[in-house]
Design a protein around this nucleic acid. Structure first.
Length: 446
RNA sequence: GUGGCUGUAGCUCAGUUGGUUAGAGUAACGGUUUGUGGAUCCGUAGGUCGCCGGUUCGAUCCCGGUCAGCCACCCCA
């Protein structure tokens, strides 16, 4: 007999948790759909080649690979390599790019899709980090319009607003500015190393950032120029002006500034709040080419949402000129944060509104009949399936948080009135079926 | 992949300066004479004290290893 347990970094969800998760997913989904995004799904596993090389060196290491089976596995054993040909998806964006290329003739562009599915990473689990977790992606692909970015900003604001979570910070930057920065420092080939380091600015502080830059060979004057830029703060429009001066000779930089300026202008026009320009925001995924987003909350250590624009992702699968932008909500982290802040309580309830308690087999049959009528009226209800003591049946209703118990005994069979107990008040009243239906329906409306 | 902390009942934790029958709370189950729940009361059950090895007359307690969990780094949702 093996011990009952699940793999590291995975979780079971009890009914109370699963209901809260359903509420979270439903809320996010409703916002996505209200902006015209359609759902898609892709398989849990992809060809290993589809995923490899898309997430950087670190990312490749964290991909869960699936062992070959049978003769192919034996052959791999003998050669000592190529043990895997498939892998669990690492995120939803790369499979989405694959999907778009593969099904391009069935899609009309710009294509707006959402996708809420689990992804897997062979990371070491810790607070806010799981090996299996859900991402809720929205992407708009096939347009370069910056209005797509604006729409994502609206979605972010609406989602957290509906979840009742205040205080979220949406940090914004643009990869073109980071590229320009590398050019400005004559360090274009160090772009990735550089961005990884400056991304840590708010975490490790300016001094350590300088040390790290120095340790990978940046000269002091380069570091100074860089620091002067990434530590710029204040009013975005003033900031944009000074960046425009700095990047006067660098087209990428000017473009990036212009794009950011547009987003901030639009956000102001649409009254989107909580936006913050952060020139040190880099994000690890290397396929981003334009706007990059990251959403954080002061009470949570890691980001709860992130994304950006990618111009060339589909070209990895043979389709050029397909720019897209998307973000991903980290459902599990958002769940943890909502739980931590006690924002779930008023939003979840019992599945059934009524439990039918019974005194025997005949009564169960009778109860099933009435239950079917209630369900036809849109009232969720449940029949206790066997004859056990009333105490046990009422305890069951209590444990499941079912607000009403309707007892069926020999007296009730064929009778006009049914005793329905309100579990919160403890009061029992005898009502006709019609009265019960209208009582429960009136509660439904709220 | 690197480092730190922890590992006693389903859960939360006591405890033994190493000594023979390891405790509590809570949850579960049952009972208070079979038509009524939510911390009324009573009772029952549940532990190879993570696993392996060492020291010792003796280890749940000390030491080593191992596994697992948590936290941090890396990286990320």
């Amino acid at each position: 007999m093996s011990k009952a347990s699940i793999p590291k970094g995975t979780r079971d969800f009890l009914p109370s948790e699963a209901k809260k998760r359903a509420y979270l997913f439903d809320t996010i989904k409703a916002v996505f759909e209200s902006h015209g995004y359609d759902p898609i799904e892709t398989p849990a596993m992809e060809h290993l080649q589809t995923l490899l090389g898309k997430y950087g060196e670190e990312g490749d290491r964290l991909i869960f690979k699936i062992l070959k089976r049978g003769d192919k596995f034996k052959a791999a054993l003998q050669s000592g390599n190529d043990f895997a040909d498939q892998a669990l998806r690492y995120d939803l964006t790369v499979p989405f790019a694959r999907f778009v290329v593969q099904h391009r003739s069935d899609l009309s562009f710009p294509f707006k899709r959402y996708q809420m599915q689990p992804v897997w990473r062979a990371d070491r689990p810790q607070k806010g980090r799981y090996r299996e977790f859900y991402q809720c992606d929205v992407d708009c692909i096939g347009t370069e319009s910056l209005h797509a970015e604006v729409e994502l900003l609206q979605i972010i604001e609406t989602v957290f607003d509906r979840l009742g979570l205040s205080g979220v910070e949406v940090r914004l930057n643009n990869r073109k500015i980071l590229m320009a920065l590398a050019q400005y420092l004559n360090a274009e080939e160090r772009l990735i190393e550089m961005t990884v380091i400056i991304d840590k600015l708010d975490k490790i502080g300016l001094r350590k950032v300088c040390e790290e830059l120095s340790s990978i060979g940046f000269a002091d004057d380069q570091i100074k120029k860089l620091v002067d830029i990434i530590t710029l703060t204040g009013n975005p429009s003033v900031l944009f002006e000074s960046l425009t001066d700095t990047f006067a000779q660098i087209p990428d930089g000017l473009k990036g500034v212009e794009e950011l300026q547009f987003l901030f202008d639009m956000a102001k026009a649409l009254n989107i709040k909580g936006l913050k320009l952060d020139l040190s925001l880099a994000r690890g995924l290397n396929y981003y080419t334009g706007a990059i987003f990251e959403v954080t909350h002061p009470d949570f250590k890691s980001s709860i949402c992130g994304g950006g624009r990618y111009d060339d992702l589909t070209s990895l699968f043979g389709l050029e000129g397909m720019s897209g932008v998307g973000i991903s909500f980290g459902a599990d982290r958002i769940y943890d944060l909502l739980e931590q802040k006690g924002l779930f309580d008023q939003n979840t309830s019992a599945s059934a509104q009524v439990l039918f308690a019974n005194f025997g087999e005949q009564e169960v049959k009778y109860a099933q009949n009435i239950a079917a009528k209630l369900r036809a009226e849109g009232i969720a209800c449940e029949v206790y399936l066997e004859r056990v003591k009333m105490k046990k049946q009422f305890s069951y209703a209590h444990a499941k948080n079912i607000p009403h118990v309707l007892s069926i005994g020999s007296e009730e069979i064929g009778g006009a009135l049914l005793p329905i107990k309100n579990m919160a008040s403890g009061e029992t009243q005898k009502l006709s079926l019609e009265a019960i239906i209208s009582l429960l329906n009136s509660k439904n409306d709220h």
